[in-house]
Simulated assay, not measured.
Amino acid sequence: MNLTLLKNCKFYQTDILLEDQEILIDEKTILAVGKAIPVNENIKALDLEHHLITPGFVDLQVNGGKQVFFNNNISVEALAQILQAHEEKGTRYLLPTLISSESANILKALEVVAEAMHQHPGILGLHLEGPFLNPGKHGGHNPKNIRKPVNTELDAIISRGAGVLKIVTIAPEIFSREQLLKLLEQDFVVSAGHSNATYEQAQAFFAMGGSCVTHLYNAMSSFQHREPGLTGAALSSPVYAGIIVDGVHSHYSAVKMAYELKKEKLFLISDASFIGLEQDEISFEGTSIHKKRGQFYTAGGNLAGSSITLHDALQNLVKSVGISLPVAIRMATEIPARLLGLEQRIGRIAVGNSSKLNVLDDALNLVQKI
Rank of each mutant, 00 (worst) to 15 (best):
Asn2Val: 09
Leu3Glu: 05
Gln13Asn: 11
Thr14Phe: 14
Ile16Gly: 01
Asp20Lys: 12
Asp20His: 14
Gln21Met: 12
Leu31Arg: 03
Ala32Tyr: 10
Val33Ile: 13
Val33Ser: 04
Leu46Glu: 13
Leu46Ala: 06
Leu46Asn: 08
Leu48Val: 04
Leu52Met: 11
Thr54Pro: 05
Val58Lys: 07
Gly65Trp: 03
Lys66Tyr: 15
Gln67Ile: 06
Phe70Glu: 07
Asn71Thr: 11
Glu87Ala: 14
Glu88Tyr: 13
Leu94Ser: 08
Ile99Thr: 08
Glu102Arg: 13
Lys108Ala: 04
Gln119Gly: 12
Ile123Ala: 10
Leu124Asp: 07
His127Ser: 04
Leu128Cys: 08
Glu129Cys: 04
Gly130Glu: 01
His138Gln: 13
Gly139Ser: 04
Lys144Asp: 09
Val150Leu: 14
Glu153Lys: 06
Ile157Trp: 02
Ala162Gly: 07
Ala162Lys: 15
Leu165Gly: 04
Ile167His: 06
Ile170Leu: 01
Ala171Gln: 00
Phe175Leu: 02
Arg177Ser: 12
Leu181Asp: 14
Glu185Lys: 15
Gln186Cys: 09
Ala197Trp: 00
Phe205Lys: 00
Phe205Pro: 00
Phe206Gly: 00
Cys212Ser: 15
Cys212Gln: 15
Val213Cys: 02
His215Thr: 13
Met220Glu: 10
His225Phe: 04
His225Ala: 05
Pro228Leu: 14
Pro228Arg: 12
Ala233Tyr: 00
Ala234Val: 11
Ile243His: 03
Ala254Ser: 15
Tyr259Phe: 14
Glu264Trp: 10
Leu266Pro: 05
Phe267His: 08
Leu268Ala: 06
Ser270Cys: 09
Ile275Gln: 02
Glu281Lys: 08
Gly286Ile: 02
His290Gly: 10
Gly294Phe: 11
Gln295Arg: 15
Gln295Glu: 15
Gln295Thr: 12
Ala313Thr: 07
Leu314Ala: 05
Ile329Val: 14
Met331Ala: 04
Ala332Tyr: 12
Ala332Pro: 05
Pro336Arg: 01
Leu339Lys: 05
Gly341Glu: 03
Asn358Gln: 10
Leu366Trp: 02
